[in-house]
Design a protein around this nucleic acid. Structure first.
Length: 607
RNA sequence: GGGACCGUAGUUCAACUGGUUAGAGCACCGCCCUGUCACGGCGGAAGUUGCGGGUUCGAAUCCCGUCGGUCCCGCCA
């Protein structure tokens, strides 16, 4: 149908007869001469329709509307000097139309403009999702999908060179107790039983290692039936990787190279390596989170020593009951942030509250080591304490110091949140830096478990297949059960600008150790056997040491394309109600279908 | 499950503390225009103000409910 694309033609093609296909991006009708911007995936080019080419041709050109699908036969010719458009790549030339065939007319009113000229227009997402096919035709979305493809291709090509093979794993699998809520699929053949869609191919990729694949990857669709966010979809894509006979450091280094090659391909950037690394403990101490945004400072400073004997009860009580007092220093905060904002009712105060903090103490540093604060604090501060605080926080006159006091996890959560809120609010990183700075960080040495107080049991931080640090559990099997709860895992997350973009670990390849871990998270022997028996069996039949990682592809593409939502990187995403407003899914099904599946709905329509 | 914000011609927005005929750009329809490129000019059509209820002499505006969308907490790696 075509022998050239719109965007590829240049002055070198002058004199050629070409056939093009595409959409009418815009039509400019001068009565005598008509210009059509014809658009395809590659770009746009101007089609000129001259009345001298005949009434029929001109009549067709007059009837065209935006987004009409055309096939054009024409002659590539130079534009007159004064009509050259330097703003577009094809601006030196135009196509003199000799034949226009309407491949498909637009008979419906368009819900929004697709034209590249309107690409920055603020179209409601509701509409975009309903008519996603049109939305995808827009330049921005078209480019995002191309960028996504290039990202995957770069990963595939890198992994190919490193000896990885792509293996598909089942989408119909079994439900497992840990982690997110499963999407379930009733089995017709096995009445009363259900498949679950995989939250990740975790177990299968480990079993591929036991199967001697040694190096596996997959662009894997994963499903989690939890509430949505801007960066969370019920179905999302992981770049899933697993390898045998690799130590933690070797895995990290290889994955770092993978990321470097992706950024080189997509952005043309040579990322400096090695990426910085930080233990989980250090991340929590210095930033209050396991995924610190290291593009700016404002680090958390531990001031418990200073206030342990303070007469300010909020501080001293926090410490005596096992918690801590930490603070962040906001440079020039005295000018930038008013008391209204950090006192009850203020926006910064309520950020702290949302994190669970009871309050948000503050000290304003003035000249000559004087400070301003509330009376209750000031009355209990000695001159030497002030001196030490200023020294410790490295603060100077004009700075505002904000305090969190209480249980350590709440203090960390609070100050992390306030730190991010203030950084965004004060534009401590400029909009430009936000989009051009790539601060990668490996966070390592996660604890194996954390206590779930609701269920009164230990819970795996990543998942229950992460291997502990060998030095933490020792050689003696009989001590594992006691040592494991306080062990760290050989687990690592890759953090980029405060977002987790991947995470992985070495896996347990010893069946006894695996049994012990399952026991610690509260599975009985029977439950462990029932749910993970196949894994434990496999581990006892010559499982190689192995480990891997999974990257959140949607998030990576979101960052590479400077989008704020992963929906803009997914061709057909779901709304926040996990609904597809285009296909109108989910939807009711016929009773017969339910009968076949041996299930009945308990749903009662509110109407 | 909870909190916040949003919903007005096809679309993007406007309409003061509630006030009588709900406006404008683009798109659409008609006419004019031979070098534009976000072409231009003249004219026209286009509305259950998401839906339901309430308050009021009077509701796009205030209140309640509901549906849809977005952001966030819980949840989720």
């Amino acid at each position: 149908m075509r022998n050239k694309t719109c965007g590829e033609l240049r002055a070198s093609a002058i004199g050629a007869n070409v056939q093009l296909c595409g959409w009418v991006d815009r039509r400019r009708d001068h009565g005598g001469v008509i210009f059509i911007d014809l658009r395809d995936r590659s770009g746009t080019i101007q089609i000129t329709v001259d009345p001298e080419q005949g009434k029929d041709l001109f009549g067709i050109a007059e009837s065209l509307r935006n987004e009409t699908v055309l096939q054009i036969h024409g002659l590539v010719r130079a534009r007159p000097d004064e009509a050259i458009n330097k703003k577009i790549p094809t601006g030196e030339i135009e196509i003199l139309a000799e034949q226009i065939k309407i491949l498909n007319a637009v008979t419906n009113t368009l819900p929004f403009s697709v034209s590249i000229h309107d690409d920055d227009e603020n179209i409601k997402e509701e509409l975009r999702l309903k008519h996603r096919y049109l939305d995808l035709r827009r330049e921005k979305m078209n480019n995002n999908l191309k960028l996504r493809h290039k990202t995957v291709r770069a990963a595939r090509s890198f992994l190919e060179n490193e000896g990885f093979i792509e293996v598909e794993t089942p989408v119909l699998t079994r439900s497992t107790p840990e982690g997110a809520r499963d999407y379930l699929v009733p089995s017709r053949v096995c009445g009363g039983e259900f498949f679950a869609l995989p939250q990740s191919p975790q177990l299968f990729k480990q079993l591929l290692m036991v199967g001697g694949i040694e190096r596996y990857y997959q662009v894997a669709r994963c499903f989690r039936d939890e509430d949505l966010r801007a960066d969370r979809q019920p179905e999302f894509t992981q770049l899933d990787i697993e390898m045998s006979f690799m130590e933690e450091n070797e895995i990290i280094e290889l994955n770092e190279k993978l990321i470097v090659s992706i950024w080189k391909t997509i952005k043309g950037i040579d990322l400096p390596t090695p990426f910085p690394r930080m233990t989980w403990q250090e991340a929590m101490d210095r930033f209050g989170t396991d995924r610190p945004d290291t593009r700016y400072d404002m680090e958390l400073v531990e001031t418990s020593d200073l206030f342990s004997k303070s007469g300010f009860k909020v501080f001293s009580n926090a410490i005596s009951s096992g918690g801590c007092v930490k603070c962040i220093t906001i440079e020039d905060g005295n000018n930038l942030i008013s008391n209204v904002r950090i006192k009850p009712g203020g926006d910064i105060f309520s950020e702290a509250q949302k994190a669970g903090a009871g309050g948000l103490a503050f000290i304003r540093v003035r000249d000559h080591e004087e400070v301003d604060t509330i009376g209750a604090i000031k009355d209990n501060l000695t001159t030497s304490q002030i001196k030490e605080l200023i020294l410790k926080t490295n603060s100077k006159p004009g700075d505002l110091i904000l305090f969190g006091a209480g249980p350590t996890n709440i203090v960390n959560r609070t100050l992390d949140r306030v730190r991010q809120f203030v950084a965004k609010d004060l534009k401590i990183i400029s909009d430009n830096e936000l989009k051009t700075q790539w601060n990668f960080l490996w966070v390592t040495d996660f604890p194996m478990f954390e206590f779930n107080s609701d269920e009164n049991r230990l819970e795996a931080i990543h998942h229950p297949f992460c291997a502990p640090k060998p030095e933490d559990i020792g050689e003696s099997e009989s001590l594992w059960k006691d040592k494991l709860p306080n062990s760290n895992a050989q687990a690592y997350d890759l953090v980029l600008n405060g977002l987790e973009i991947g995470g992985g670990s070495l896996r347990i390849h010893n069946s006894e150790l695996q049994k012990t871990v399952l026991e610690i998270i509260g599975l009985s022997k029977n439950e462990a056997e029932e749910q993970f028996g196949f894994l434990i069996d496999a581990l006892s039949m010559g499982a190689p040491p192995h480990g891997g990682i999974a990257f959140g592809l949607d998030r990576i593409v979101m960052l590479l394309s400077n989008e704020d939502s992963i929906r803009d990187t997914i061709a057909f995403p779901k709304t926040q109600q996990a609904r597809c407003s285009m296909a109108k899914a989910p939807a009711n099904v016929a009773n017969k279908q339910l009968e076949d599946l041996h299930i009945a709905s308990t749903w009662i329509d509110p109407d």
